[in-house]
Amino acid sequence: MTSIFSSDGRQTACTIIEAGPNIVTQVKTKETDGYSALQLAFGDKNEKHSNKAEINHFQKASTSAKSFVKEFRDYSLEKAIGETITVDIFAEGEKVDVVGTTKGKGFQGVVKRHGFHGVGEQSHGQHDRQRAPGSIGGSSYPSRVFKGMRMAGRMGGDRVKVKDLKVVKIFADKNYILVSGSVPGHNGSIVLIQK
């Protein structure tokens, strides 16, 4: 992340995303596949680590092996196989949604995972209850724990969409796009940008 100043001196935190060049590796149409979609590939991959099926698939689009492939259904732009999609499709000032996988946090308690406040106080003879979940249900009725009761467990690693991030700046020659605020995932992770 970094930040950018507006002309009146306001500082906006923003994230740098390398958006492209994405190469169209397959065009699915209603006649051949039953639905229309574009398959885009991003990021180079060592040929040594890709199998023949992959290499030949990318050769059809006359590119080298790629590390990440994603299909977009009903893509609004008309593109042929082998063409590239760059940051040019975005404009400064418009709003985008960013989809990514959040950082994995491991097994976490209810305070961190669900925002519980713990039980009891720090003093007045209480101890060992500060991050406890409290009661999880009645005893005689319902005499069971309801489904979906928020408890401790694995946190993070979820697919999350952050909506309405503003495109602050675009560096077209490097395919960098700066969006306001933060996006899901660790540094270097792959995200989708939706208009």
């Binding site: 970094t2 950018i4 740098i16 390398e18 560096f171 490097k174 960098y176 540094n187």
Partner: peptide
């Protein structure tokens, strides 16, 4: 520093 961050900083500063 990350290369992308460095590039953007050079452009912005």
């Amino acid at each position: 520093m990350n290369a992308a961050v460095q590039f953007v900083h050079e452009q912005l500063t």
